Amino acid sequence: NLRWTSEAKTKLKNIPFFARSQAKARIEQLARQAEQDIVTPELVEQARLEFG
């Protein structure tokens, strides 16, 4: 299971509600691909840039 830093959680809250669950799934996918067990603000930002 993935842990989220408080900064990453804050960044996730800045994503519009309607896109948040999809973004969260993508962020967690990116973390797993990078073999990380902690979601960082950088991963959230990477996903945000993908979504535009």
Rank of each mutant, 00 (worst) to 15 (best):
residue 1 N to M: 13
residue 1 N to D: 12
residue 1 N to Q: 15
residue 1 N to S: 14
residue 2 L to Q: 02
residue 2 L to F: 06
residue 2 L to E: 02
residue 2 L to I: 13
residue 3 R to K: 13
residue 3 R to E: 10
residue 4 W to S: 00
residue 4 W to L: 00
residue 5 T to C: 03
residue 5 T to E: 05
residue 5 T to Q: 04
residue 6 S to D: 15
residue 6 S to V: 07
residue 6 S to I: 12
residue 6 S to R: 12
residue 7 E to D: 08
residue 7 E to C: 06
residue 7 E to N: 05
residue 7 E to L: 08
residue 9 K to M: 10
residue 9 K to L: 14
residue 9 K to V: 14
residue 9 K to Q: 10
residue 10 T to I: 14
residue 11 K to F: 08
residue 11 K to H: 12
residue 11 K to C: 07
residue 12 L to H: 01
residue 12 L to K: 01
residue 13 K to I: 06
residue 14 N to R: 12
residue 14 N to A: 11
residue 14 N to F: 10
residue 15 I to T: 03
residue 15 I to E: 02
residue 15 I to Q: 02
residue 16 P to G: 03
residue 16 P to K: 04
residue 17 F to N: 07
residue 17 F to R: 12
residue 18 F to C: 08
residue 18 F to A: 10
residue 18 F to W: 15
residue 18 F to Q: 08
residue 18 F to I: 09
residue 19 A to L: 15
residue 20 R to H: 05
residue 20 R to T: 03
residue 21 S to W: 09
residue 21 S to D: 12
residue 21 S to A: 15
residue 21 S to I: 11
residue 22 Q to D: 09
residue 22 Q to E: 12
residue 22 Q to V: 10
residue 23 A to W: 13
residue 23 A to L: 15
residue 23 A to K: 02
residue 23 A to F: 13
residue 23 A to Y: 11
residue 23 A to E: 03
residue 24 K to R: 09
residue 24 K to V: 13
residue 24 K to M: 11
residue 25 A to E: 12
residue 25 A to Y: 11
residue 25 A to S: 09
residue 26 R to S: 04
residue 26 R to G: 02
residue 26 R to A: 07
residue 26 R to L: 11
residue 27 I to R: 01
residue 27 I to W: 02
residue 28 E to K: 02
residue 28 E to A: 03
residue 28 E to C: 04
residue 30 L to S: 02
residue 30 L to W: 08
residue 31 A to S: 03
residue 32 R to K: 10
residue 32 R to H: 08
residue 33 Q to A: 13
residue 33 Q to I: 12
residue 33 Q to T: 09
residue 34 A to W: 13
residue 34 A to I: 09
residue 34 A to G: 08
residue 34 A to F: 14
residue 34 A to T: 11
residue 35 E to P: 05
residue 35 E to G: 15
residue 35 E to W: 08
residue 35 E to V: 06
residue 35 E to A: 13
residue 36 Q to E: 07
residue 36 Q to V: 14
residue 36 Q to M: 15
residue 37 D to R: 10
residue 37 D to Q: 12
residue 38 I to W: 14
residue 38 I to C: 06
residue 38 I to H: 07
residue 39 V to E: 00
residue 39 V to L: 01
residue 39 V to H: 00
residue 40 T to G: 04
residue 40 T to E: 03
residue 41 P to F: 05
residue 41 P to D: 07
residue 41 P to C: 05
residue 42 E to F: 06
residue 42 E to G: 05
residue 43 L to F: 11
residue 43 L to M: 13
residue 43 L to P: 00
residue 44 V to K: 01
residue 44 V to E: 00
residue 44 V to G: 00
residue 45 E to R: 05
residue 45 E to P: 01
residue 45 E to N: 07
residue 47 A to Q: 03
residue 47 A to R: 02
residue 47 A to D: 05
residue 47 A to P: 01
residue 48 R to P: 02
residue 48 R to K: 10
residue 49 L to G: 07
residue 49 L to Q: 10
residue 49 L to P: 05
residue 52 G to Y: 13
residue 52 G to L: 15
residue 52 G to A: 14
residue 52 G to C: 11
residue 52 G to K: 12
residue 52 G to V: 15
